[in-house]
C-alpha cells in the first residue's frame, strides 16, 4: 500500500505552515522593508504549492484545503504596529536572526519532503506528481537560500554591535 498520500499530506501541512511563518516574519519585521516585502512574495510561492498539493491530492482521495489562508488578520496588524514601535530599538535585529534561522530550518525540512515525494513519484512512474515536485521544489530551495543569505548579510552587524 502506497505511503504517497502521507507524504502529500505532510507536505501540505508543512507548506501551509511555511506560508504562515513567512507572513508572520513579514509582520514582525515591517521596519526591515525588504524582509517585509519579500517574505510576502515568497509566501505566495508556498501558497501556490499548497494549491498544487491540494489538486494532486484528490487523485489519492485526499481532501486538502487549496487555500493556505491569510495569516492572522487582526493579529497581523497588531504585529506590524508593534514592529513599527520597536523600529528604533536594537533588539529586533537579534529577533530577526532567530526568525530567519527558524525559517531556514523549516524551508530546508520542506525541501527534504519534496525530495521524498519526487523519489516516490519517480519509482511509481507518476509523471504528474513528478512534474509538481520538479516545479515546486526549486522554489522551496530558493526560499531557504534567501533565509541563509539574509542571515549572512545581517548577522555580523547584529552580533558585533
Amino acid at each position: 500500500m502506497t505511503k504517497i498520500p502521507l507524504v502529500i499530506e505532510e507536505l501540505h501541512r508543512s507548506e501551509t505552515k511555511l506560508v504562515h511563518d513567512l507572513l508572520r516574519l513579514s509582520d514582525r519585521h515591517k521596519p526591515d522593508h525588504d524582509i517585509h516585502h519579500l517574505a510576502r512574495d515568497l509566501a505566495g510561492w508556498s501558497r501556490d504549492h499548497v494549491a498544487e498539493l491540494s489538486r494532486v491530492g484528490r487523485r489519492f482521495d485526499l481532501d486538502l484545503d487549496a487555500d493556505a489562508g491569510d495569516g492572522d488578520g487582526v493579529l497581523s496588524v497588531l504585529r506590524q504596529k508593534g514592529a513599527d514601535l520597536l523600529g528604533r530599538r536594537p533588539e529586533p535585529a537579534l529577533l530577526l536572526l532567530a526568525d530567519l534561522r527558524h525559517l531556514y530550518r523549516d524551508a530546508s525540512g520542506v525541501s527534504l519532503d519534496w525530495e521524498l515525494l519526487a523519489q516516490a513519484a519517480q519509482s511509481t512512474k507518476d509523471q504528474e506528481l513528478l512534474d509538481v515536485a520538479e516545479r515546486c521544489h526549486p522554489e522551496t530551495l530558493r526560499q531557504a537560500r534567501w533565509a541563509n543569505a539574509m542571515l549572512k548579510e545581517l548577522s555580523a552587524q547584529a552580533l558585533v554591535t
Binding site: P31, D32, H33, R88, R89, P90, K152, E153, Q157
Partner: peptide, 19 residues
C-alpha cells in the same frame, strides 16, 4: 568581505536601529 557590501537602504536601517 564576509558578506555583500551594505547597500544604502540597509545602512539607513542600521542607523535607524542605532548600530
Amino acid at each position: 568581505h564576509y558578506a555583500p557590501p551594505t547597500h544604502l537602504m540597509q545602512m539607513m536601517r542600521y542607523a535607524e536601529e542605532g548600530s
